[in-house]
Write a protein that binds this DNA or RNA. Structure first.
Length: 429
RNA sequence: GUGGCUGUAGCUCAAUCGGUUAGAGCGCUGGACUGUGGCUCCAGAGGUUGCGGGUUCAAUUCCCGUCAGCCACCCCA
């Protein structure tokens, strides 16, 4: 075997490409329904776009190198910094709120495993310039509607919802959770579901938290559902205010009829440091796969990158985990037969008339194919069927004499003679 | 980046205790079938057993390295 794709990179054979296209088409369709406009940026960006925001360690996970002009560049690992730059540059001119989406191919140099490659396509939807919770609800609704558009209902997926402002308010009721140490608590909470309790306690003790603080953190982690969270918030000084946005988001989603998908869970934190409020993830119910989609509110990022003060909320949804889930649910896309007709020449003297007919039909936008060698009709029909053509148009000496073609329905096997004048116009019956 | 497991035809898998010419099904190509596909039958092509080294009279089989895949960690687009 001579060569193969680099590790973590995919070849898309026609059936894979059809599947990918069907995912993209659904993404675009839902984005359109929500009034989003599509944009794109360069796949190659200045390295600093990522290092400035994410810290130098992430360079280890970037496809980064020096170009021939000595510039340090990187293949984009995420779309948000590019979006921030683009919006920042025209922030004055763009009518707010901005609703934009993109389907970039993103790259990351990491060891691949299931659901995580070195390259993937990711739908990004963002609302920029609206600080209120209606924007958060709108995006969460879009994420859920995408799942629904793929035939995934509340029995297949669930949306886990949290809010960092709520989490902060609850944590701060304990004196040991303050300032930088809240970040540590975030980090631990993010992993609390994946680790056993002993491991979690060990990490907290290493970070100098005492038994009462650890107890408090587990208390917060165990709060499930909005009622439990609200009850707890009422016992904090700034609690009710911190919970306002979360309540508004849940209310809006309820009004849209999406409550059965939504579950408040404070252990959803998201790894990225720049989230400031709402955070959410879409999961398969069985929780066998990684998150299908993740996002949240990041109100300070554009100011950091472009200097404009614009609140944002957005999410990313990759094609890899989603594709795995769809395949599991047997919703794998079958490549559609794209031909309208397969033209069959009975003998060598029929080839030129078939070519002529093919050219005329193609001019009319009709998709046709014919055998590239002289073959028995048997072979030509076999190819026609394999290509998924709905019908074969057979032309032989008898047909030419009678100025007709035999149109054979390849599904039913029924055939009839149709005048050539009609066939030439793409009328096959 | 760390650790564990696994690599045989395009795909799914065989190959006895280490035994000489590595097989089968599906798929692909051709034929039976000279104006009618799907069925059936026949034949063919397709392999450096991931790659490299070692042990042995003999390696798909045992050992080491390496690459790739899967899983876990790390990390989360």
């Amino acid at each position: 075997m001579q060569g193969q794709a680099l590790p973590g990179f995919r070849d898309f054979y026609p059936e894979d490409f059809a599947f990918r296209n069907s995912i993209f088409a659904t993404w675009r369709e839902v984005a359109r329904r929500y009034g989003f406009q599509e944009y794109d940026g360069p796949p190659l960006e200045p390295l600093e776009l990522y290092t400035d925001k994410s810290g130098a360690e992430i360079v280890q996970q970037l496809y980064a190198f020096e170009d021939k002009g000595g510039r340090k560049v990187a293949l984009r690992p995420e779309m948000t910094p590019t979006l921030a730059r683009m919006v920042g540059a025209r922030a004055q001119a763009l009518k707010k709120p901005i609703r934009w989406f993109s389907i970039p191919q993103l790259f990351r140099y990491e060891r691949q495993q299931r659901g995580r490659l070195r390259e993937h396509f990711q739908l990004n939807m963002d609302i920029i310039g609206e600080a209120g919770p209606a924007a958060d609800a709108e995006l969460i609704a879009a994420a859920i509607d995408i799942a629904r558009a793929f035939g995934l209902g509340a029995e297949h997926v669930r949306l886990r919802l949290s809010d960092r402002r709520v989490l902060t308010a609850l944590l701060q009721t304990h004196p040991q959770f303050h300032g930088e140490r809240i970040r540590i608590a975030f980090d631990v909470l993010d992993k609390v579901e994946r680790q056993n309790r002993n491991e979690t306690e060990r990490r907290l003790r290493e970070a100098q938290f005492d038994a009462s603080a650890i107890e408090r953190l587990f208390e917060i982690a165990s709060l499930k559902g909005i009622e439990a969270v609200l009850a707890e918030l009422r016992r904090c000084p700034d609690g009710p205010a911190a919970g306002e946005s979360l309540v508004a988001v849940i209310t809006a989603l309820g009004a849209m009829g999406l409550s059965e998908f939504v579950e408040v869970d404070l252990t959803v934190v998201r790894g990225l440091a720049y989230y400031t409020g709402t955070v959410f993830e879409l999961f398969d119910r069985a929780k066998e796969l990684r998150a299908i989609c993740g996002g949240g509110r990041y109100d300070n990022l554009i100011k950091e990158i472009a200097g404009m003060d614009l609140p944002c909320v957005g999410f990313g949804m990759g094609d890899v985990v989603l594709g795995e889930l769809l395949t599991e649910h047997r919703r794998r896309f079958e490549a559609p037969g794209q031909l309208d007709a397969f033209l069959v020449a009975v003998g060598g003297e029929d080839v030129a008339p078939v070519l002529h007919l093919a050219a005329g039909l193609r001019d009319r936008g009709i998709a046709v194919e014919y055998a590239l060698r002289n073959q028995p009709i048997r072979k030509q029909l076999e190819l026609a069927a394999a290509r998924g053509a709905p019908r074969a148009v057979i032309i032989g000496p008898d047909e030419r004499k009678a100025k007709v073609a035999v149109v054979r329905d390849l599904k039913t096997g029924k055939q009839r003679k149709v005048a050539l004048t009609k066939v030439r116009k793409g009328v096959f019956k």
